[in-house]
């Protein structure tokens, strides 16, 4: 019977289906396929105001902030620094969102069981993963969300308002999976799903997607996993960068560095497992040096990251724990995505 139904559904009226596909794939900003008409004046004003606010925050951060930070360079490697932030493109991720701007999204999987407060390990009572406000500065593009990847994420696709071409995908297959012990294959699997899911939206020949998947050691209960894409549309290189990852006082920023050459569209990684291992080692040497030292450096649970770009999205996870006196403590960890 399912076959009959499936055949029937697939044989529905062409115009009806085309109208649906059009609606589904068009920019939406409200329920049931209501379509955007472009960046409205109010939105443009808000964007400008946001940009101004961010500039002020950035300036403040540059002048006064002395926290350690990590970032990924243009080769996809992570660098971790302490002390002064000298690059004006770097910002304090936690400054980018406020709780009011956050809306909860469903979280599945295992949440961290404990957080460290003043050196003491406290059991986590509550965990909330927020999707932060998307901050758009001066980008003349529409943004909209395309459904589905996995339960953890709500991917956003940026479409050039003039050409209708996809110019950016962010928040794809981001998985918050602290302590789950996921493997690199898991993350790469997510990435592959994401890539294949989004291919219909990527219009252009010579498409090449470079996928970086980060697998965390999970020795840290508060660690994050993430995935990001670099992709190429013809001669246009659009890079999407994600960085994050430390929480609760430890860093395990082990990067699995994976490329999918999707010119063949089959999602086959072009770097094999052995090369992964080499990259992992070189990454650790390059970015972290003495891991123990780095852990000490961020022992206060500072989370700062940055990447060059004009466009950012943040995810924040709030963990709440209660100490023996019944006092509640929260720790917030933020994930930020930037497009450069």
């Amino acid at each position: 019977m399912k076959d009959l139904l499936w055949n029937a559904i697939e044989s529905l009226d062409d115009d009806l289906l085309a109208e649906h596909v059009e609606k589904r794939d068009s920019p939406k900003d409200a329920a049931f396929g209501q379509q955007k008409k472009g960046i409205r004046p109010l939105r443009a004003a808000l964007i400008a105001a946001t940009a101004a606010l961010l500039s002020a925050m950035l300036l403040f951060t540059l002048l006064f902030d002395r926290t350690p930070y990590a970032f990924m360079d243009h080769e996809g490697f992570y660098q971790i620094n302490t002390g002064n932030r000298t690059d004006p493109a770097f910002r304090h991720a936690e400054d980018l969102v406020t709780p009011d701007e956050l809306s909860p999204i469903p979280v599945t999987g295992t949440i961290p069981e404990s957080i460290t407060v003043n050196g003491e390990t406290l059991a986590v009572k509550d965990c909330l993963l927020h999707q932060g406000a998307t901050l758009l500065y001066g980008l003349d593009a529409e943004k909209y969300t395309i459904p589905f990847i996995n339960d953890h994420t709500s991917p956003t696709v940026t479409v050039d308002a003039l050409t209708g071409r996809v110019t950016g995908i962010e928040n794809v297959a981001i998985d918050h999976s602290p302590g789950l012990g996921k493997t690199a294959e898991d993350y790469i699997g997510y990435a592959r799903t994401a890539v294949l899911t989004y291919l219909p939206y990527l219009d252009g020949e010579g498409l090449r997607i470079k996928n970086y998947a980060s697998m965390l050691d999970h020795s840290s209960p508060n660690a994050y996993g993430f995935i990001l894409f670099d992709y190429y549309l013809g001669d246009i290189r659009t890079a999407l960068r994600v960085s994050v990852f430390f929480g609760g006082g430890t860093i395990f920023s082990i990067g699995v560095y994976d490329y999918f050459d999707l010119s063949s569209l089959d999602g086959t990684p072009v770097i094999d497992r052995e090369e992964h291992e080499t990259l992992l080692t070189s990454f650790a040497d390059y970015a972290c040096g003495d891991m123990t030292e780095i852990q000490k450096t961020v022992s206060d649970g500072v989370l700062v990251m940055g990447a060059k770009g004009r466009y950012a999205m943040s995810y924040t996870m709030t963990l709440t724990a209660e100490d023996p006196d019944g006092k509640e403590h929260t720790q917030i960890f933020t994930l930020e995505i930037e497009l450069d």
Binding site: L4, L5, N7, A8, I9, E10, S11, L12, D13, L16, L17, H20, K23, R24, A31, F32, G33
Partner: peptide, 25 residues
């Protein structure tokens, strides 16, 4: 299937836009 498809198409065309979108989604 064709017969069923024709009937479902007619049914969908008679629905409000948002219901149709929901059904097809």
């Amino acid at each position: 299937a064709k017969e069923l498809a024709t009937l479902i198409s007619r049914f969908l065309k008679g629905l409000p836009e948002h219901s149709r979108y929901l059904f097809l989604s």
